[in-house]
């Protein structure tokens, strides 16, 4: 069944535009005719029950799904007007432009400093002053600088969970992405660390387009400007978060966010 799309689903001048996206794992279809536009410098939350295709959709935006065997993508995803599935596209460059933070923090077994500048070193930057400046700026943006500035050369593995997750955000922003994808970034964190990450997301919004998958409905309501509700691979409703959480257009959305379903 195809759901009619709320007119607001097409944000004006979207940075990420998705048109008739279908995704198949072999013969199983995981995304069904998904179309919407994600606005620049806003936080967009993807919500929906497990298995609805949120994370699959998120991974389409920086082509992380390319690594999955038997996966097939149809339809169009453009970022700033550029087709990201164009065979001629440099995927490494795409992933620099579209950073990602995962559910479970994944710092490298290196120093805090080396974690942050890792992407820059891969890009061939060797000048110490450039790396130092990038490390400081990125850690400040991730609201971690004050806590680690005196132990930058110590192992990242000694940080707390919340600090490691912020380190991963610092690592993501160090390469100057335009879009940051977050796949349940707070699901393994305590409430205090979650609050720090949520505050950070609000602060980063001015500089980056953030797309976040979350199972925490209140988190989506608190931090996002737009929310998309997905179910069984379809986009059911997309619109301003305030509207979706007070007067949703669709009955299915209301039933899900009020806990009557899902």
């Amino acid at each position: 069944m195809s759901h009619p799309v709320n007119p607001i689903m097409s944000a004006e001048n979207p940075q990420v535009a998705v048109e008739h996206l279908n995704l198949f794992y072999g013969t199983a279809q995981a995304l069904i005719d998904v179309s919407f536009g994600i606005p620049k410098s806003q936080v967009t939350a993807l919500i929906g029950p497990s298995g609805c295709g949120k994370s699959t959709f998120l991974r389409c935006i920086n082509r992380m799904n390319d690594l999955v065997e038997g996966l097939r993508v149809e339809g169009l995803i453009t970022i700033d007007g550029e087709n990201i599935n164009d065979p001629a596209l440099d995927v490494i460059e795409l992933r620099r432009k579209v950073g990602m933070v995962f559910q479970k923090w994944n710092p490298f077994p290196k120093s805090i400093y080396e974690n942050v500048v890792y992407g820059l070193r891969i890009a061939g930057i060797k000048e110490r002053s450039v790396l130092d400046q990038a490390a400081e700026q990125s850690l400040k943006r991730a609201a971690l600088w004050d806590e680690v500035k005196d132990r930058l050369q110590q192992s990242a593995m000694g940080l707390s969970g919340g600090q490691m997750q912020r380190l991963c955000i610092a690592r993501a922003v160090a390469v100057h992405p335009e879009i940051i994808l977050m796949d349940e970034p707070c699901s393994a964190l305590d409430p205090r660390s979650t609050a720090r990450i949520e505050q950070l997301i609000r602060e980063l919004r001015d500089e980056y387009t953030i797309i976040i998958v979350t199972h925490n409905m209140q988190q989506a309501a608190r931090i996002s400007d737009y929310t998309a509700y997905m179910y069984l691979g379809e986009l059911i409703e997309y619109g301003p978060t305030q509207k979706l959480f007070t007067v949703p257009e669709r009955q299915e959305t209301e039933e899900y966010i009020t806990g009557r379903f899902g």
Binding site: M217, A221, F245, T246, V247, T253, E254, I257, T258
Partner: peptide, 9 residues
């Protein structure tokens, strides 16, 4: 319950 939508209204 941190209600939303119809419950909040």
């Amino acid at each position: 319950h941190q209600p939303v939508a119809c419950d909040l209204r």
